[in-house]
Design a protein around this nucleic acid. Structure first.
Lengths: 115, 115
DNA sequence: GCAATAAGGGATTTTTTTATCCCTATGCAA
DNA sequence: TTGCATAGGGATAAAAAAATCCCTTATTGC
């Protein structure tokens, strides 16, 4: 059905990283899961600008890419928790450094972005 | 004219980073400039999948965000060179680590992406 | 004279991504 | 009994991003 017309590049390491992380909310999702916000509803509250729908979709992709695991508790009302896999955990330090770079350069970034 | 309908998020460091780096080719552009491919035509040859047009646009944005500087040599045929600013250089180590993560996990990434 | 190279931008279309809206189900609280 | 919380997905619309096509300028090489 929805086949992509333009193939994804998988030439180098950076391409591979992009293939799993290049989406509007994925990095934040990983980050918040790492911080202990495991349930979809919690994640949604942490990222209110995102629609519930996309978060579900991107979580499912993260799961498919084995960065997170989904645990469904058979209770009512439903309870679901995502946790980082070891693989997923291995990228957290990099996300952390990225965020730190952003924080450290906040003023400058804010000024060049808004100008 | 082209005003964006959905505002960019600038809440945390990761949002700020996304505001300057979240585009299909920017990270590779920075990386290749760092490697010494300074001229637009060289960059285009390094990233043949990208259209010339988008590379120009993204280079201009990188310049506006003060990550690179553009030098125009008044010669014919025209010669232009982009170089990293100190600010731009400061993010290179992170890109390097990202790429390394991709390289180190190449097999696994390739398999989960293609499955 | 003609093609290639260099750089780049306007106009437009296509592709992709994200948002919006509406639907399911169950149990608890006011 | 109405409303909310939980989780999620289908269908579709809208937005954003990227691709495609065409145009300009001047020089070198054939």
């Amino acid at each position: 059905m929805n086949e992509r017309k333009i193939p994804i590049n998988l030439n180098c390491g950076l391409d591979l990283v992009a293939a799993v992380l290049y989406a509007k909310w994925k990095i934040r999702l990983l980050w918040f899961i790492h911080q202990g916000f495991l349930r979809p509803s919690e994640l949604q509250r942490k990222i209110p600008e995102a629609s519930r729908r996309v978060l579900n979709i991107q979580l499912k992709e993260l799961e498919g890419h084995e960065l997170v695991t989904k645990k469904i508790y058979p209770v009512v009302p439903p309870k679901v928790e995502y946790t980082l896999t070891e693989f997923g955990k291995s990228i957290i330090p990099i996300i952390s450094v990225l965020g730190k770079w952003g924080d450290d350069n906040e003023d400058r970034l804010r000024s060049v972005i808004t100008k």
